[in-house]
């Protein structure tokens, strides 16, 4: 199939970028979106042009690197998928596809479609961990955890830090990501000793990074490739408020 692409090109962090048009004549519908980008880059290299820089790593939907804003949506038109798991069969011959980087002041563009997501790392460094070694897997049932809590913690822990929630949020808020990261530990016994400090420190770092404020629109939950529930945002509000009240 034949595709028209409109891609954001930007030479470096400080450079002015612009949308540039490209045409690909032979795209196989079975290709993944990233393979289509590889074909484009091969074509650009053959023509002596600079290839389009984009982040990717695992190409199997688990690392979260493949950030692309496709046709106005994070990771493209399908829900529950990363860009690497999006296939060209979901597009039609002759389509124009607009491809942009995540846009948020906390995620500055490095080059073309690559953005710097280290703000997420700094939020994790602020408190998204347990300070002591909790040892190897305990014997079954030696540390009772309600099944419901285990499930919720596990669901929250599936967040891959891709940043689609920030990218799609009209406020560029990171509440779904931080909500998931605070929840996964606050729901488990090992997370209790640092529960309050963690919530406060991670929220403070989130604010420092310049993410926006949550309006509870729910867009993040729809676009999250891992289906992280927006319940985690209300839980973060609760954890933070509770921490502010009980912190000594």
């Amino acid at each position: 199939m034949r595709l028209n692409l409109k891609i954001w090109r930007q030479k470096g962090p400080k450079a002015n970028g612009k949308m540039v048009d490209y045409t690909l004549n032979e795209v196989n519908p079975e290709m993944s979106f990233l393979e289509m980008m590889d074909v484009l880059n091969q074509q650009l290299v053959d023509e002596g042009d600079e290839p389009v820089a984009f982040d990717h790593d695992c190409r199997e939907g688990i690392c979260g690197m493949c950030s692309m804003f496709i046709n106005g949506r994070a990771h493209g038109p399908m829900t529950g998928t990363t860009t690497c798991q999006l296939h060209m069969r979901h597009f039609n011959d002759g389509d124009t596809i607009v491809i942009e980087p995540w846009r948020a002041s906390a995620f500055p563009v490095i080059k073309d479609l690559m953005v710097d997501r280290s703000a997420f790392d700094r939020v994790i460094q602020a408190g998204g961990y347990i300070s002591v070694n909790t040892g190897s897997a305990p014997d079954a049932n030696s540390l009772p955890i309600p099944k419901q809590n285990a499930d919720m913690a596990f669901d929250a822990a599936t967040c891959i830090g891709c940043g689609a929630c920030v990218a799609t949020c009209k406020n560029a808020s990171a509440m779904l990501f931080v909500g998931a990261k605070v929840s996964q530990l606050s729901l488990l016994p090992q997370g209790q000793p640092e529960r309050e400090e963690r919530a406060i420190r991670m929220v403070e770092q989130m604010d420092k990074e310049g993410f926006g404020n949550c309006t509870n629109t729910g867009a993040c939950e729809v676009e999250c490739p891992k289906g992280i529930s927006i319940e985690n945002i209300a839980r973060l509000n609760r954890e933070y408020l509770r921490a502010k009240v009980v912190q000594k």
């Binding site: 954001w8 948020a104 009209k170 808020s173 309006t215 729910g218």
Partner: peptide
């Protein structure tokens, strides 16, 4: 503050795809 958090707008953004009009 929310405006500051995204200084550069998207070229194309499908707002209606994932959030209600009132909430936006």
């Amino acid at each position: 503050q929310n405006k500051q958090a995204r200084p550069q707008a998207y070229y194309k953004k499908d707002d209606a795809a994932n959030a209600g009009w009132a909430s936006r």
